[in-house]
Computed example of a mutant assay.
Amino acid sequence: MGVSLSPSSRGKGRRRSRRAAMAEINVTPLVDVMLVLLIIFMVTVTLPAVGVPIELPESRANPVEEVPDTVTVSIDGEGRIYLENEAVPVGGFPDALTAIGRGGDGKLPTLVLRGDRGLDYGRVMAVMGEMNRAGFTRIELVTDGSVSPP
């Protein structure tokens, strides 16, 4: 005679251990990703807006409010002209200015002039004169802040 176990009596003496599902989230990878994104953001914000390396002159002038519709014109130490980050070919500055065009409101954008401190004053004035001749009347000059009066 054998003993048979019915299905209902099989699991009675044994305890079935089931692991409960974990309700926790491992936040370490999330923190790592957020720190990397923060570092990338901090590095890119501190980069200059225009990539032309220029040693700006110093001035104690009060800063002006930034206007959203601006185009940056830079003149490096050798006198080469850059429109935003693109070098303008020799003699092509008037054509580059006419290609800028008017905004949606029909106004010309404000030109922001960045000139190297070692430039000849005549070179800067020639560039500004060409800007005026092209119809640009709002021109801002960019300088570094200075703590001592001239």
Rank of each mutant, 00 (worst) to 15 (best):
E58A: 12
L47V: 08
V50M: 05
V90R: 11
I100M: 15
G77H: 02
G135I: 14
T72E: 15
I81D: 05
L83I: 13
V31S: 10
L56N: 11
F41Y: 05
R14A: 02
A49K: 14
A20Q: 13
F136N: 09
I100A: 01
V31I: 11
N62L: 06
I25C: 10
L38Y: 09
S17R: 01
R14H: 11
P109Y: 12
P150D: 05
S146Q: 03
V45N: 06
V3K: 07
S4P: 05
E66Q: 10
R123N: 15
D105Q: 13
T46E: 13
G79H: 00
M1A: 02
P7H: 00
E78D: 05
L35C: 13
G91V: 02
L111Y: 02
R102C: 00
G106Q: 11
R102V: 08
D120S: 13
V71C: 01
I25S: 06
S6D: 11
S74W: 13
G103V: 10
G79W: 07
G91N: 13
T137E: 06
R14F: 08
S6W: 12
L37H: 10
E78Y: 01
G77K: 12
V27C: 04
F136V: 11
F41A: 14
S59T: 09
V27N: 02
I39M: 07
L47T: 02
V52C: 09
I39N: 03
G129D: 09
I139M: 14
V127Y: 07
N62C: 06
V64G: 12
R60M: 11
V71F: 00
R19M: 14
M34V: 09
L141C: 05
P150A: 04
A87Y: 11
S148R: 12
P109V: 11
P57K: 07
S74T: 01
A49W: 08
R117A: 02
A23C: 07
T72D: 04
T28E: 01
M1D: 01
S9I: 10
R14C: 02
V64F: 01
E86C: 09
N26K: 14
F41D: 07
T72L: 06
P149C: 02
P29G: 06
V3M: 09
E66K: 13
V36W: 14
L83S: 15
V43P: 00
G51V: 03
A23P: 11
V31T: 09
G104Q: 11
N132E: 04
R60D: 01
E55T: 15
T44L: 07
A23K: 14
G51R: 08
A134F: 10
E58V: 04
G13P: 02
F93Y: 02
Y121P: 03
D76W: 15
G51P: 06
G145N: 03
I40A: 01
I54Q: 08
